[in-house]
């Protein structure tokens, strides 16, 4: 395949960025999108140019490091991570636009790499459980109803990639935060901090400068792990419940 790539290039956080055009040839449709970028970077290095910086780690769709907006879609046209997107989703001769996640809470560090540490701080704000650590507990010591376990697991699938923020027209982190809140709030292990967790995580989310939810549903459409839009409804419910309970104290 022969492709025309239009890639966002930006030297550093302070620099002005712009789209640059590159031609790449000899791309196999079995390559992943990141392997296609590796091909581009090898050529840029050989030509003595600065390679395109982009995030990646596991390349198997589980770490949440990869992050590209491809033709206007976070993680591209398929519902998966960029590392699991393959070039067979494109046609020979295509022009592909590649941009970084856009949100003021995710500033660009270089080219396609953005700083997502705001997510870490949201997790820190409420993300631990008061449970004894050390030896693994008996599996049946704390019974969890099957439906709750499934619900928790569905939300635990969030890999924190930030596609929800990138897709949201308000740069909101509601889907991410709701995945974390719902995951722990439904389980008995997460019950002692049920109220403080949701209040503190939402407060941190606001403090980081993310926008608010207008229920466009773009986040859930972009999520490579299929976290559903009703997760946000669930977090709103938890938040209102917590605000009422804490208000009474």
């Amino acid at each position: 395949m022969k492709l025309t790539l239009r890639v966002w290039r930006q030297k550093n956080a302070g620099a002005e960025g712009a789209m640059s055009t590159y031609e790449v040839d000899g791309i196999s449709s079995d390559m992943s999108f990141l392997e296609m970028l590796d091909v581009l970077n090898e050529r840029l290095i050989l030509a003595g140019e600065d390679p395109v910086a982009f995030d990646h780690d596991c390349r198997e769709g589980i770490c949440g490091a990869c992050s590209l907006v491809i033709n206007g879609d976070a993680h591209g046209p398929e519902r998966t991570t960029t590392c699991q997107l393959h070039m067979r989703s494109f046609q020979d001769g295509d022009t592909i636009d590649i941009e970084p996640w856009r949100a003021s809470a995710f500033p660009v560090i270089k080219d396609l790499v953005v700083d997502r540490s705001a997510f870490d701080r949201i997790i820190q704000a409420g993300g631990y459980v008061t449970a004894p650590t050390g030896s693994a507990p008996e599996a049946h010591a704390t019974p969890v109803p099957k439906a709750d376990a499934d619900f928790a697991f569905e939300h635990a699938e969030c890999i924190g990639c930030g596609a929800c923020v990138a897709a949201c027209p308000n740069g909101a982190a509601m889907l991410f935060t709701s995945a974390k809140v719902n995951h722990l709030n439904v389980l008995p292990q997460g019950a002692p901090e049920r109220e403080t967790r949701v209040l503190d995580m939402v407060a941190q989310m606001d403090a980081e400068g993310f926008g608010g939810c207008t229920l466009t549903g773009e986040c859930a459409t972009a999520c490579p792990k299929g976290i559903p839009l009703v997760s946000i409804t669930g977090m709103n419910k938890e938040w209102l419940r917590a605000a009422r309970k804490v208000g009474k104290r």
Partner: peptide, 18 residues
């Protein structure tokens, strides 16, 4: 106001959303 501030730069490759 907050939403607009949280997403200052638009994508070059825009498409109609929602």
């Amino acid at each position: 106001r907050r939403d607009i501030k949280a997403r200052p730069s638009k994508y070059v490759h825009a498409r109609p959303r929602s």
